[in-house]
């Protein structure tokens, strides 16, 4: 039930909702839990809400650490 899926913010509307692209499909999501989000950010989507912004630096860091080994 705690499933959440990463998607890219395509468009933000005035009513704190956004269009989020997930693997080619566009879903609407509420942004009230992460108001600091911008178009182009990747967010985690859970039950119609974006619950967190994905930190792109941290995302790469963890892979880089292993690629060199």
């Amino acid at each position: 039930m705690c499933l959440a899926i990463p998607g890219k913010v395509k468009k933000i509307s005035n009513d704190h909702t956004a269009e989020i692209e997930i693997g080619g499909i566009v879903k609407k999501a509420n942004l009230d839990l992460i108001p600091q989000v911008a178009v182009g950010d990747y967010v985690l989507l859970h039950a119609g809400f974006a619950i967190e912004v994905i930190d792109q630096e941290e995302a790469l860091e963890i892979l880089r650490a292993w690629e060199g080994k």
Binding site: D32, L33, I34, P35, L44, I51, E52, I54, D55, Q56, E58, A59, E61, I62
Partner: peptide, 18 residues
Amino acid sequence: IQYKRVVKPEGNRIALEK
């Protein structure tokens, strides 16, 4: 925290407030 791309030590303050 292994899942650093998503999880911050303090969590999501707005969600917690709600």
